[in-house]
Deep mutational scan, measured.
Amino acid sequence: CHSECLGNCSQPDDPTKCVACRNFYLDGRCVETCPPPYYHFQDWRCVNFSFCQDLHHKCKNSRRQGCHQYVIHNNKCIPECPSGYTMNSSNLLCTPCLGPCPKVCHLLEGEKTIDSVTSAQELRGCTVINGSLIINIRGGNNLAAELEANLGLIEEISGYLKIRRSYALVSLSFFRKLRLIRGETLEIGNYSFYALDNQNLRQLWDWSKHNLTITQGKLFFHYNPKLCLSEIHKMEEVSGTKGRQERNDIALKTNGDQASCENELLKFSYIRTSFDKILLRWEPYWPPDFRDLLGFMLFYKEAPYQNVTEFDGQDACGSNSWTVVDIDPPLRSNDPKSQNHPGWLMRGLKPWTQYAIFVKTLVTFSDERRTYGAKSDIIYVQTDATNPSVPLDPISVSNSSSQIILKWKPPSDPNGNITHYLVFWERQAEDSELFELDYCLKGLKLPSRTWSPPFESEDSQKHNQSEYEDSAGECCSCPKTDSQILKELEESSFRKTFEDYLHNVVFVPRKT
């Protein structure tokens, strides 16, 4: 048989008469490798580009789960590009990614509803959504962080984005990388972005840091009482949809009607710091009717980097990364020049730590249904340095008659930039024990000054392991946590139920 035959053949030295091919099969003959313009397919066939392209389009058009959109890589027609490569849609070739590779997620039936953290986790790592997304989240724990972890990498949506009755959302900033909504599939009414009845939605994105392009379709905003109209108009300008909307697409009466839409800028007039305090004062603000001013709200939190936005980490279910302080308005003076500047002394802060701070007014709604208010920009203030805590785990070892090696770990709280350490030492008198000992005694162990690591005695271990207080009263049991108490109650309830079950099964009433 021919060298490319495997198993047997019907005619000697003829690659077209093989029972099976050793390498690849091409047009009725066995070959060692697939010549151009053919590609290896499933490690035994040679196919042309049209064959591989037909497989790709067949799966793409069917949208069946589990099928493969075949691509070409290293002269092979394979189910998908290997790690580190992405497909070129024009020629199906796998090309190296520039940075992290995109991950295209194809949605069944063309859309997916995100109504819980669990459903959001199914899209973790996706960068391109081939379909439409509907966000409908009523509640949950730590929602802002969970949504950002699972949806934060999405850069492109081919269909539309719909935010509907998501009472738990305060902001859409968890879509931190969303840059493009194509609108290839539109919501009824030709809408590519749809926001309806979101009672706590206050911000779409921080438009000073976020760009969003909507290729096709219109915007729809109705019944978002805490979303200011200025935020919607800003989205029109940034996304390129200005002029597409009709009169009733953006409701003037049901958007922002319960919001404090600040239209003035508060400026800080005085800032002073110490290692654990920050004193702030800002310019006074009074609405047209000074009785509408209820006070100020001061927001602050630790910020290692200057990239904080107002609604980071917030949701309507209680999660809030900001510390909020309510401040009463100052006494009002008739003389504008003698107006008191409101302020606040922030206490209990960490030394040498940068804080993000902003302040906003708290006002009631005027009778004319106009909203007044003022808010400052987010500023960054760093507390002063102070003395560091003591170095940890000092170790001293003498390696000769004239040297001592000293080692330690950095302090747990540096409280500033540590530039150097101060080492103090003092000579001590020799131990009298060394002169009084009889060095001729056998088995004498000389006193040693070398360091030995501390260890816990058996008594201390027994005390720590004991669940009861000892007789001397030195140790006591740790208080039980809520989960331990709940577990004990469940076990007790189970024992009672099981005992009742045994009584009912074992003891049967005697027939009379």
Rank of each mutant, 00 (worst) to 15 (best):
L169A: 14
G313K: 08
N200R: 07
A144E: 12
L227T: 08
K162E: 05
L293A: 03
S158N: 06
K350L: 10
S119C: 09
I214Q: 11
P284M: 15
K234N: 08
I181T: 01
I163K: 04
G243K: 10
I278A: 03
L392S: 12
S333G: 10
L153P: 11
F268N: 00
L201D: 01
T127S: 12
D197W: 15
L204M: 08
S274W: 05
S401F: 04
E283K: 12
D326H: 03
K177A: 11
S269C: 14
S389M: 13
G125T: 03
E246C: 06
L227M: 04
V128Q: 02
L252W: 12
I395K: 04
K301R: 11
L293M: 05
E231C: 10
H210A: 08
Y300A: 11
T361D: 02
R179P: 00
E264W: 01
I379W: 06
K253H: 10
W286C: 05
L147T: 06
S119W: 04
S208M: 10
S171H: 14
E122V: 05
S274G: 02
D393M: 15
D249Y: 05
S402F: 07
Q306T: 11
P225L: 07
T361N: 02
N141F: 12
S119D: 14
Q216P: 05
T383L: 03
L345I: 11
F193M: 14
R179V: 11
A145N: 13
S396L: 02
K177E: 08
T215P: 15
L227K: 00
N248H: 01
Q245C: 12
Q199W: 06
P287T: 10
R202L: 11
G295N: 15
H233D: 15
Y372Q: 06
W344P: 03
D197I: 02
V238G: 15
S239V: 14
R291Y: 02
M235E: 02
L196D: 03
F174M: 05
N211T: 11
Y372S: 02
L161Q: 00
W205P: 03
L151P: 00
G313I: 08
C126V: 02
L204K: 03
S208V: 08
A251S: 05
A385V: 11
L229K: 10
D367F: 13
I188G: 13
Y380V: 13
L266Q: 04
D384A: 15
S239R: 13
N150W: 12
V104C: 11
V128E: 01
R244Q: 07
L362Y: 03
V238W: 15
E236I: 15
L161C: 10
I163Y: 01
L227H: 00
A144V: 13
R179K: 10
T353S: 09
A144S: 11
V128R: 12
L212T: 11
G343D: 15
P410E: 02
D115G: 07
V325P: 00
L212Y: 03
Q203R: 13
F193L: 10
L196R: 05
E231M: 10
I154S: 01
W408P: 15
E146T: 04
S132Q: 15
N224T: 06
E264T: 06
K337F: 04
L180T: 12
Y305E: 10
L252E: 08
A374D: 12
I405R: 05
V128Y: 14
Y194T: 11
L252F: 06
I395A: 04
L266S: 02
S389V: 01
S319N: 04
P330N: 06
T361A: 06
P351F: 06
I134H: 04
D289V: 01
Y194Q: 06
L298Q: 00
W286G: 06
K162W: 06
L219Q: 04
L153R: 11
C261D: 02
L186Y: 13
F174V: 07
L201M: 02
A120S: 11
L180W: 15
S171R: 05
I181S: 01
D393W: 09
E262T: 07
L219H: 03
D328P: 15
G131V: 00
S116I: 01
M297A: 06
K360H: 04
F174G: 03
N224A: 02
K162C: 08
L169C: 15
E155G: 07
P288F: 11
K226V: 07
L279V: 12
Y194W: 12
Q354L: 12
F311N: 09
V238L: 11
S119P: 06
L107E: 14
T273M: 10
K103F: 05
L298V: 03
S208G: 13
C261E: 02
K226Q: 07
W322Y: 11
D384N: 14
S401H: 06
G217F: 01
C317E: 08
H106Y: 08
G125W: 13
S171V: 05
D206M: 09
K242A: 09
L219S: 13
F220A: 13
P287K: 07
N387L: 10
F311T: 14
A374P: 05
G313N: 12
K218A: 05
P410R: 11
L107Y: 12
P225R: 03
K226A: 09
F174Q: 02
D326M: 02
E302T: 08
E368S: 11
Q203M: 08
I271Y: 15
L293I: 08
F290M: 02
L172K: 00
E155D: 04
I154N: 01
T254R: 06
C317K: 01
T185S: 09
K350T: 08
N150D: 07
S119T: 11
A385F: 11
P288T: 09
F220M: 14
S338I: 06
S208H: 06
R179M: 09
G217R: 09
C261R: 03
W282M: 10
L201V: 09
Y194N: 15
L252I: 12
K267M: 13
D335P: 12
E264V: 08
W322S: 01
L331T: 07
E156P: 00
F290L: 06
L392K: 13
Q306L: 10
R281F: 15
V308G: 15
K234C: 12
S173P: 03
D115R: 08
N307I: 12
E122L: 13
K242P: 10
K409F: 06
Y372V: 03
N255F: 06
S166Y: 03
K409L: 10
L345F: 13
W352V: 03
E302C: 03
L147W: 15
Y160L: 15
L133A: 07
T185L: 14
A259Q: 09
T213S: 10
V390H: 00
D393E: 13
I129M: 05
Y160I: 11
S396M: 03
R182I: 09
S319F: 07
W344R: 13
L161M: 11
Q382W: 05
T353A: 10
E283I: 08
S171N: 12
I278L: 15
T213R: 13
G256E: 03
L392C: 12
S401G: 07
I188T: 13
L406M: 05
I114N: 01
R291G: 01
K226Y: 10
K242Q: 15
N307V: 10
P330L: 11
D367Q: 15
G189T: 08
A303F: 14
A144W: 08
Y194A: 13
T118H: 13
P394H: 13
S333Y: 08
Q216H: 12
N130G: 15
C228F: 02
K209Y: 12
A145M: 15
W205T: 01
F175L: 14
S116F: 03
S239T: 11
K350H: 12
V104Y: 06
